[in-house]
């Protein structure tokens, strides 16, 4: 059991997550915080379905193997657009 380093933050704080949206975008980044209104991500990459000939699923498969190159230092995704938040390390 690892210690809880930041008890005031969401349990996903510090964890690299995949944030899928109801639109074409999918995000991979380190979760800073998450609540009913927003997901705050750090060191974030974004992929649009079909970019570089890759679907969202194919992008996630590759991200799970190697990680991602960040496009943004910090990004806030409105919770209303979020379909799922998953740990990249478990995919």
């Amino acid at each position: 059991m690892s210690p809880d380093w930041h008890p005031e933050r969401h349990e996903l704080h510090g964890i690299t997550v995949v944030v899928d949206t109801s639109g074409p975008e999918i995000f991979v980044g380190r979760c800073d915080d998450l609540d009913d209104h927003q997901v705050i991500l750090l060191d974030v990459d974004v992929h649009e379905d079909g970019d570089d000939g890759r679907s969202k699923e194919e992008y996630v498969e590759r991200a799970a193997r190697f990680g991602v190159w960040k496009k943004f230092d910090r990004l806030v995704v409105p919770r209303s657009r979020v379909v799922s938040v998953r740990r990249l390390g478990e995919l």
Partner: peptide, 13 residues
């Protein structure tokens, strides 16, 4: 072989 951060952070020692 490479172990990136995301394969460490969700796991136990």
């Amino acid at each position: 072989y490479f172990v990136p951060r995301h394969r460490i952070e969700s796991r136990s020692a």
